[in-house]
Design a protein around this nucleic acid. Structure first.
Lengths: 270, 270
DNA sequence: CGATCCGTTGAACAACCTCAAGACGGGTGG
DNA sequence: CCACCCGTCTTGAGGTTGTTCAACGGATCG
């Protein structure tokens, strides 16, 4: 059930359990203009198991290297793409953290997801050739630019890639099914527990601790995603803290009782 | 915005405006065993513009005929597939009406969508090779069975089909984004207005009236989809009725003031 | 024609929201 | 280096929406 709101790395969690990468501190020197870009190769990217299918031959891998046209840096707060922009490419996150959100005519913003390294963005644009949401960096980020025509061309020649693309889209559909369940059926505490567990799972798959995390988004953004007001998010954090389940220090969260969090998440009998 | 919760027929609405098909009354004779199936062809199916890409050559069309292995009838209340079933095929609805729903461990059911003729079901199963939701017929139905391996094989040879498959999946992602917005941000009246307008739009695209519809689902199923209790659904229907916006006679709904419904849907300033 | 499911309505209640005030922390400029 | 400022977060009090529980009416179907 947790997987329903999970990211596109569920099956790969085990493979990454032994990783112990720590995110390097961001320094001023690393912040280059948002539009700068340069050539790269997937075949020696340490995230390739997150983005690409497994079991490719060397020849196929070499062909796939061409799938990433360029990389692109986005500074914190910058838009990778905006609703209404023409759709031409998918993006794979190399570093950084994004939110995607839709905005209704009357200005209400709905965060539809949070994305981290190895996850794919832009799938919403395929149906209408225009993006349907905003993708905004919550910290300085770098993405791989994958022209969709090229993805399709290669998919026709590499069945494993074709299946992989289909799985990524299907996974997003299933994730959103889980969010619907969360929004329609769960109470505030269950939502927040589900949110934290999901983030922990995805971060753990990337080599981070299971018992600590840094929230890259504000309380308001969490609230938007979970269908509750920022005050309720804050109160629920406080409640968890009072109960000794977590320790909250601003954006730093330490998990003290993972099991209890799981129990809250599973709670039907409230 | 309405399109966010729309079905996979948005772009085709205009093409179908002139249709004037009325659903034939269901009789006992039409109800055959759920498992019966037989061969058919897409090329002369009157729903092909809803299921299939436009602009195919005759040769391509002939190849595509083979995409539907069989048809399958499902009786009201029957499961087309269930969560956990091995995934092998997609389904296109020929006649009838379905709901898809996920069930959490603790037994809470969440309706994730309602599907009608020309719409595709089963995309949720691709990611894990197992279905992730239940698809249940809300009236006697018939679907086209399309083995997914075959869909993929043909997609590799017919780029237009490949793109079409991608669009269908992207459309589902965008639809669910809209549902998230609805669940997280809207009040009961807005949700129900959005729901009615969406159904009307999709039915209209299939030749039905813009001012009348028959609900194939119960108040509870509507409530599940919209994240509210059946009592609230009923009360909101009554409220709309009192205000002269609609006329409610059990499952029969007549739209008296389409514009007002639209206004409620758009209402930010409540 | 009775059983059952479905829908409607009322009244009390709870969860969450709204509004408001104040605390904290990081960044900036003097 | 310190003071200030702004965005963010926390907490309280009171209000509102939607839920819960319950009873009843109506439709459908064997």
């Amino acid at each position: 059930m947790l997987n329903h709101i999970g990211a596109n790395d569920i099956a790969l969690q085990e493979a990454y359990n032994q990783m112990d990468v720590q995110r390097p501190p961001r320094t001023a020197e690393m912040q280059v203009p948002a539009e700068s870009s340069f050539k790269v190769a997937c075949s020696n990217c340490n995230l390739r198991e997150l983005c690409l299918p497994i079991g490719l031959s060397t020849a196929e891998m070499n062909r796939l290297d061409g799938i990433v046209a360029t990389r692109k840096k986005v500074k914190q707060g910058g838009h990778l793409f905006s609703s209404g922009d023409p759709f031409t490419t998918l993006y794979a996150i190399r570093t950084g953290f994004f939110k995607t959100c839709v905005v209704s005519e009357d200005g209400r913003e709905q965060v539809t997801g949070f994305q981290m390294a190895g996850e794919i963005m832009g799938l919403d644009g395929i149906v209408s050739d225009h993006h349907n949401c905003n993708a905004i960096a919550l910290e300085d980020a770098e993405v791989c630019v994958m022209p969709f025509n090229h993805v399709e061309d290669l998919s026709r020649e590499i069945p494993v890639l074709q299946r992989h693309v289909h799985k990524i889209m299907s996974r997003e559909i299933v994730r959103e099914n889980g969010v619907m369940m969360l929004l329609a059926n769960m109470r505030a505490e269950e939502r927040l527990a589900a949110f934290l567990l999901n983030l922990l799972q995805r971060l753990h798959a990337r080599g981070y601790s299971k018992s600590e995390l840094i929230l890259r988004m504000t309380r308001e953004e969490i609230g938007s995603y979970l269908g509750m007001k920022l005050e309720t998010v804050s109160r629920t954090f406080s409640k968890f803290s009072d109960e000794g389940i977590i320790e909250v220090k601003q954006k730093n969260i330490r998990i003290l009782d993972h099991e209890k969090l799981q129990t809250i998440f599973n709670a039907s009998t409230c």
